[in-house]
Design a protein around this nucleic acid. Sequence first.
DNA 1: AACTGGACCAACCGCGAATGC
DNA 2: AGCATTCGCGGTTGGTCCAGT
Length: 315
Amino acid sequence: MVRPPCCDKVSIKKGPWTPEEDIILVSYIQEHGPGNWRTVPTSTGLSRCSKSCRLRWTNYLRPGIKRGNFTPHEEGMIIHLQALLGNKWAAIASLLPQRRDNDIKNYWNTHLKKKMKKIRVASDSTTIGQYSSKSFNYSRSLDISRSNHGSSFRPSQSQTHSSTYASSTENISRLLQGWMRSSPKQPLKEITQEEEKFQSYDEFENSNNIVKSASVPASLNLQLQQHKTKNEHDMVSHEEFDSILSFENLNNAPWDKSTCDSMPENVYVASVKGAEKNRVTSENSNAPPLSFLEKWLLDENVGHVEEMIQLSPMF
DNA sequence: AACTGGACCAACCGCGAATGC
DNA sequence: AGCATTCGCGGTTGGTCCAGT
């Protein structure tokens, strides 16, 4: 039996990280950059395994992470991306700037899952006929919502900052600032000007050839297909999913590049490819090209999901 | 005041994919 | 090709807080 390369020593510390450990880790990463985690514990003297260091960095210390309550916009994004992708938290997180997959996962499990359950129970108590008309109303309400809000959402472009990586002193001072607010429960931490600098971390990652999020939108179509065939637990029912797809009155919408101007280029490319794929796979269905769904998901209007919930009796 | 149960969330675990040698 | 290691992901756990009783 081969022992795992990590976390196999008795001396390895577990449990919550202390501020001192955080400072040591951040200082080291500021100096050497993220990666080569194997050497981190030995180089820093931390009694943590390399994996623990990496997780602590990526899930907590990494710059550009937004903490605190989710906005209605983000909530709507999560609901619909979960409907589209299932429990692909990393993929969902890649479309929600600054949010960690762990946070999204937690938020789904603690808040949204219950919410969706209620919705499901509510919709189960109605007849199928009523359901389909409600599904239609939902589509309409989406349309209304869309027409009322013209701005667009640009996940990465909206946060184009200098690609300069923050200095270690800044990073550590950020940590200290957080700890100075002694309250252990620390919701809704406003993003300060200083923290704005850290929002360019994705660019920093890109410059280091760590491009993981870029590939996600391209996989949307595949995952949608998988969703259709795979009966994963915790995912919305087929009926709910179909209701999301039931944009009957949108089938004739033009799907040219101009409709996708608000999305990042890579998403657009993926969408076009996906739409072409859909022409083959959904010939006999009324579902709109997935590119629309992708665009819609990336559209700011989805943030007004609560409005839509109020508008639509389905919710 | 003490207890209890739920909510929340950081951290851990195990697995599979990717990578390097 | 085969092995070791790294990395990323999703599921789960355990500690803490807090409201209700």
